[in-house]
Design a protein around this nucleic acid. Structure first.
Lengths: 335, 335
DNA sequence: TTGTACGCGTTATCAC
DNA sequence: GTGATAACGCGTACAA
């Protein structure tokens, strides 16, 4: 059996309250007793039970994060940012993943709620709006990250995706491309549909003519990226440039290009929207990309949680967008 | 204020125990009361407080994972494997990262202990042996993964790294290489030193002559990979082949090769020990690699935790090693 | 079948 | 400075 505070008190020959005090660094305890208690703690290998502490304190010292896909480097960077500030506050980090499944998202959120997470950071499928709002109504600090979902009264932190799309399209346009293929994300997720719509709108604004056949949608998988690339390049009039909205889709496209013998950028230009991690530095040809900032997003989202935790007055929700950058490499060229 | 079981009981006009029963699916409760309770729960938006449940049950339904580096894809594959089986058991997943710092490892482990984690999975720096043993002595199921640390009485799951080294060296040897450079890991971590030693031993067995200058060690960073590669290639007699023991070191080496204009495999062959994820499929030249199985490791480690949780009889510790594979790509060639 | 009372390990408020 | 004691939210014998 693992030692409790009672065991310590008994062994040290003091009262329960005294032990509690030395554990929590209360000054009002004599040097002598403090030593007694400390040696008893050492002797028993006593470790305070945070479950009991948390029950008493009504505070789990845990912030929970719901990711879409644990193994995606973008998402990992998000998690890393959150982890950094969580440990800085001596908080626990709980992690769940949706894999784009609404049911898993619901399960995780309910788990987080039952655990009385002090804060929840969500990269959502967009299909659990009711649940998320319910959490917010219970005064649990919630921050949505990366994927914007409308009509949820909470903080949002992400990249300026509209701007990112614009930068990507403008770059291609400046290089003379007007027949542009797009490998979109999953229309079954809210943000996938939203970004899809966004691309169409930006294209209209930039007066790039719309051709349905140039727009491929599907799951966020490299298989889908491969498939989309193949289909685009086997069109009667293939695009002269392709925009991939996410890293794994782009990776799939590159693989397809390699295996089909399509050379980038000679036959087709390729541009990607994603975090510029080290990985993309060693790929050849270098892929031109519009950069996102998952690490910053994670850090900022976590910071917001802790701010909310400190000041309990009515929050005014923030909407933080990080400015995308453009890194020009070899995969895009003038037509 | 968030609703408690008392509120539910009051609103439903039943006793506390009755509510508890319907929450936990106890059959001995009349249909009528059950409905009363359920509608009260719905009306209040009641969610059971797992902190209190856990205190009562003496069980946190949490398994905690200590990783080395959250953003490393190998490590996240590990985490993914663990997550899969954790959610299958309806368990929470807590995550911490050491960043190779013994202090952070200690902090995390203590946090896990205080949280009364049901099980702990550790990818250790190797410097907290005492703490880990203390946890084990308290009957907390502990599984060490990936990095082997001797003299800790617990289960271990990892790749057969000695075999992986052997496969890598033999492959190079068969291609006629005998002047082989090695980019080792961090000698300041236990397993880094262990693997370093392992390489030397295997080289001896394969009668590859030892030359100190061909062995570079340092942190697990791409910067270090770059530096090591550069140093190796500027030797008076540079190696004809290089073995990188980890993904980021290898990535650094590739970057250095690109920026120095060293062509792989024409000037030097390169082989890597790592998980074969999609990433390595789109790199050119394709990197020959000896494969590891982090996903399987994670799954198996988590399974062991749950086995230990079920049968409380004295465990006989297991040592599971996954067999490495060899994927020959373009980065290694006959000399 | 239903309700009462106790205890899980802590912290905090008291008197002393 | 110190030690009882109530309370945190819940599960569960036990009695009713």
């Amino acid at each position: 059996m693992v030692a409790t505070i009672k065991d310590v008190a008994r062994l040290a020959g003091v009262s329960l309250g005294t032990v509690s005090k030395v554990i929590n660094g209360d000054l009002s305890v004599s040097e002598k007793r403090k030593e007694q208690v400390q040696s008893a703690i050492a002797a028993l290998g006593y470790s305070p039970n945070s479950i009991a502490q948390n029950l008493r304190i009504a505070n789990s010292r845990t912030i929970s994060v719901l990711l879409a896909n644990i193994t995606n480097s973008f998402q990992m960077a998000l998690a890393k940012g959150i982890e950094e500030v969580a440990v800085a506050h001596n908080y626990n980090l709980a992690i769940g993943a949706t894999n784009e499944l609404m049911e898993k998202e619901l399960d995780s959120l309910e788990m987080f709620e039952r655990n009385r997470s002090d804060g929840i950071i969500i990269c959502s499928t967009g299909k659990t709006k009711d649940k998320i709002c319910a959490l917010i109504n219970k005064d649990i600090p919630v921050v949505m990250v990366d994927r914007f979902v409308p009509d949820i009264p909470c903080d949002y932190v992400g990249d300026d995706f509209p701007r990112a799309i614009e930068i990507a399209l403008q770059h291609l346009q400046e290089l003379g491309h007007h027949h542009i293929g797009v490998i979109h994300g999953d229309l079954n997720t809210y943000h996938g549909a939203w970004r899809h719509e966004l691309v169409l709108r930006k294209m209209r604004r930039l007066k790039i003519k719309y051709d349905e056949r140039l727009h491929k949608t599907g799951a966020y998988s490299h298989q889908q990226g491969e498939k989309a690339f193949r289909e685009l390049m086997s069109l009667a009039v293939p695009p002269t440039a392709i925009l991939a909205v996410n890293n794994v889709l782009c990776a799939g496209a590159i693989k397809a290009a390699n295996s089909c013998g399509v050379s980038i950028p000679q036959q087709v230009s390729l541009i990607l929207i994603n975090e510029n991690n080290f990985f993309w530095d060693i790929i050849s040809p270098g892929i031109t990309m519009v950069t996102q900032s998952p690490l910053k997003i994670g850090r900022h989202a976590a910071s917001i949680i802790f701010e909310r935790l400190q000041s309990k007055d009515a929050p005014t929700f923030t909407n933080t967008l990080f400015e995308p950058g453009l890194i020009i490499r070899e995969s895009t060229r003038r037509i």
